[in-house]
Design a protein around this nucleic acid. Structure first.
Lengths: 185, 185
DNA sequence: CGGGGGAGTTAAGCTTCCTCAACATTCTTG
DNA sequence: CAAGAATGTTGAGGAAGCTTAACTCCCCCG
């Protein structure tokens, strides 16, 4: 059982995904992406950028000549777009459907955007779109959902279709308090 | 804008989360967790385990004496439980609500379980529970949802409540094909 | 009770991603 | 057009997580 090891074998790491997004966004904003722009956009040193660019170039995701501007290759462009789409989809689901605060949603989306498979993201988009549409069943559902209390209630076996045996909520709620403390501290 | 840098500052890394889960699960299965057990459970070398245990001990998540068994501290126990809960919640949401195949859902859950905030997970649990319940609005919604075609349809501005400007689905679907090819190859 | 063998640890080395300091290049401006 | 300011690159070094190889420890069996 070592799915977990594939973490390091993803197409791009968390850092790489953000470098690609930075290049794409700078390109759009200012028409070009230079080392210094990327460095300040991401808050890393220029030397860090230089070495990451080398690595991205090796993977065929960007092209970059010494002292020149950085360009995304088609593969890099696709990856950047996909990651960006994921982030938007995830963020909107978290805020608009789950009702999680902006700040939390953005941070979570940023952490997982590059890890969620396109397959999952596209289904998440579908669910979010449908729930946001004016379909009668969607509106009725949301209304019922919003007006239902947040507690799990009874947790005798089978009381909850998800938790099943022990209350999963307990271990989560316990830690939300801690997170709030940390944020406040 | 450097939320993205907090990736490296999470309470535990992906590896650490899985070491903790391994200890918890071995403890439950066999009553104790030894270095060799952990190593074979995770598919890493024993020396890798030794050094990771040192690091986890420094963080106060486990206790371990030379040549002895490994124990979770209360903090480690909590973290292990929370990660495990997250994984279950996420997996069930992905398979049962989004209808994503088991294999994909498991892998995605494994990748993000330690990154999703408890706040998001608890809301995800709430949504999943409610949708799985026999509440009339939930049942009606699911039925309508299941019988709606998967296409986005029109993507003129404002046609889709989520995509808004360009079709996010396009960049995602494009990559699903590629992923399928890779899996088949 | 003294080996032998398995369990565990240490040591050295690799990769990724970052840092700072020094050096190289290019741009700009007098 | 040349000097200094901006910009970019190189190099050395560090932390995290892994690896393999070699060593140490513990325990059980004859």
């Amino acid at each position: 059982m070592d799915i977990w090891k594939r973490f390091g074998e993803k197409e791009v790491s968390h850092s790489m995904a953000h470098y690609l997004q930075a290049v794409a966004s700078l390109k759009q904003e200012k028409g070009h992406a230079r080392v210094g722009d990327i460095a300040s956009h991401l808050g890393v040193s220029k030397s860090g950028v230089t070495s990451m660019l080398r690595s991205l170039q090796t993977r065929g995701l960007i092209s970059h000549e010494k002292y020149g501007c950085v360009e995304l290759t088609p593969a890099g462009q696709r990856l950047a777009e996909r990651t960006e789409s994921s982030r938007v989809v995830i963020t909107r689901f978290l805020t608009e459907i789950l009702g999680v605060p902006e700040a939390v949603a953005s941070e979570d989306a940023c952490m997982i955007e590059h890890l969620v498979s396109p397959q999952v993201t596209v289904e998440l988009l579908r669910l979010t779109s449908f729930l946001r549409s004016d379909h009668a069943a969607a509106r009725a559902f949301l209304e019922a959902y919003r007006s239902t209390p947040h507690e799990c209630g009874d947790h005798s076996p089978d009381a909850c279709a998800v938790c099943q045996t022990s209350c999963l909520r307990d271990s989560l709620v316990r830690d939300i308090g801690e997170a709030a403390e940390r944020a406040g501290a």
